[in-house]
């Protein structure tokens, strides 16, 4: 649902999106070296597979975006990971399109980066022996914020493309609220699970961040 198809957005929005995501991508790639490539790839594959699960919410079901969680766990690497996932989905699954790739990447990756910048320092301060509660809430914040920010960016890209899209964009944001709630709960649970089972995956004192895997 977070993939805008081709043909909808106006040329200025498409071009701005492409330039912005290309620039961010170049920055992120410079921070990633070949030693950490397998870990980055394995985690992005895990996110890809997890986003295929359809989660029941009320009478319908949703797919998770997971960009908040990716930001938390991968930091800058979330950008190329999301880009690769979007390319694969556009080319092999028909979600999205060609010219919108930049905008779609930006809509998913910018919230991920913001979550990384805002919440990773908090997470880093949590010790493995400190309570589970704060970790859960950090995760919940990332999950909820990731979805809501993406919804806002989707609405913005539609709204900036034409007056006629504004009502649709407004409704679109509202439809993302249930997903944001469920994703917040699930992301919190994932983070608490990782804290108990594999704290190495979390940024923290026992750091084994993707940027610094052995």
């Amino acid at each position: 649902m977070a993939h805008i198809p081709d043909g909808v957005l106006s040329a200025p929005v498409l071009i701005a999106g492409a330039i912005a995501s290309a620039g961010l991508l170049a920055l992120a790639l410079r921070r990633l070296d070949y030693d950490h490539l397998p870990a980055a790839a394995a985690l992005s594959a895990a996110f890809f597979v997890a986003s295929l699960i359809s989660v029941p919410v009320g009478p319908s079901s949703v797919h998770l975006l997971l960009n908040g969680l990716m930001g938390l766990l991968l930091g800058w690497t979330a950008l190329p990971a999301l880009f690769v996932a979007l390319v694969l989905q556009a080319v092999f699954f028909g979600y999205g399109g060609f010219a919108v790739l930049g905008v779609n990447t930006l809509n998913m990756a910018l919230p991920a980066l913001l979550c990384a910048l805002a919440l990773r320092p908090l997470l880093r301060r949590e010790r493995p022996w400190s309570g589970a509660r704060p970790v859960f809430w950090i995760g919940a914040a990332a999950g909820g914020a990731g979805v809501l920010l993406t919804a806002v960016m989707l609405a913005l890209s539609l709204g900036l493309s034409g007056q006629a899209f504004i009502p649709a964009a407004q409704v679109l944001v509202i439809t993302y609220v249930p997903l944001a709630l469920v994703e917040a709960l699930i992301t919190g649970t994932v983070l608490r699970f990782l804290q108990r089972v594999e704290p190495d995956l979390l940024p923290g004192p026992r750091a084994l961040e993707v940027e610094a895997l052995p």
Partner: peptide, 11 residues
């Protein structure tokens, strides 16, 4: 599902 996704990440 949270645990399932967590386990996927661990693996």
């Amino acid at each position: 599902y949270g645990w399932l996704i967590g386990m996927l990440l661990v693996r």
